[in-house]
Computed example of a mutant assay.
Amino acid sequence: MSHHQVSRSIVIEAPAEQIFDVLASPRRHPLFDGSGSVRGVVAGPERLSLGATFGMEMRMGLPYRMTNRVVEFEDGRLITWRHMGAHRWRWELEPRSDGTTLVTETFDYSYSGTLLYQLVGAPARNARAIEQTLPRLKRLVEEGTADPEG
């Protein structure tokens, strides 16, 4: 793994295709986002594919909009998107023999100003967000809700 990446994984009790359907639907992203910054979809397709763009309503202190482009796509297994900052959010799904799936989310900032990202604390902040996102995704897929209270 690159020095300029932050990754975390979780096992979800569902087939990879079912999890991927959630990840490939931008309208569902606010449901499992653990950072609290993804608020809603501005524009984009119902289902993402390679080269697709989608706009999101965001909030980190102040509201803003972000346009993302899918730069890696293997249906049911891998999806990666990036925006103007050049860093990437990658989701890798590894089906397991027991019917579960190992899901790994990676914040990859090796494509952009790595020193700036480190100075502003982005790797640590994004690690914490991933650690909150993965359990939310697990609950959403397994139980139908990302809210731990149901």
Rank of each mutant, 00 (worst) to 15 (best):
R39N: 09
R39G: 03
T101N: 09
A24W: 00
F107S: 00
A86N: 13
F32M: 12
P148D: 04
S35I: 14
R77H: 14
F32V: 07
S49H: 11
E149V: 11
V103M: 05
Y109I: 10
V70L: 06
V6D: 03
D33I: 03
D21V: 03
A146G: 06
L62E: 09
R125H: 14
D147S: 08
E72N: 12
E92T: 13
E105P: 01
R90M: 07
F32S: 01
N68A: 08
G44E: 07
S110A: 15
L48N: 01
L137D: 03
S112T: 11
G121H: 06
S25D: 11
R8C: 04
L93W: 06
E46S: 13
G76N: 09
R65F: 10
Y109V: 11
R65Q: 11
F32G: 00
R139S: 09
S110N: 08
A14Y: 12
T100V: 09
L116V: 15
A43Q: 12
V71A: 14
A52R: 01
P148C: 07
M1Y: 13
R65L: 08
G61A: 14
Y111N: 07
E105C: 04
R8I: 02
A14K: 01
R96N: 05
M60L: 15
H3E: 08
E92G: 07
T80H: 04
H87G: 04
S110K: 07
A24E: 08
S35V: 10
L23G: 01
P135C: 12
Q132H: 08
W81K: 00
Q132K: 08
L134D: 01
E74A: 15
L140S: 05
G44I: 12
D75Q: 13
L93E: 10
N126G: 02
L134P: 01
L134H: 01
A127K: 15
G44F: 08
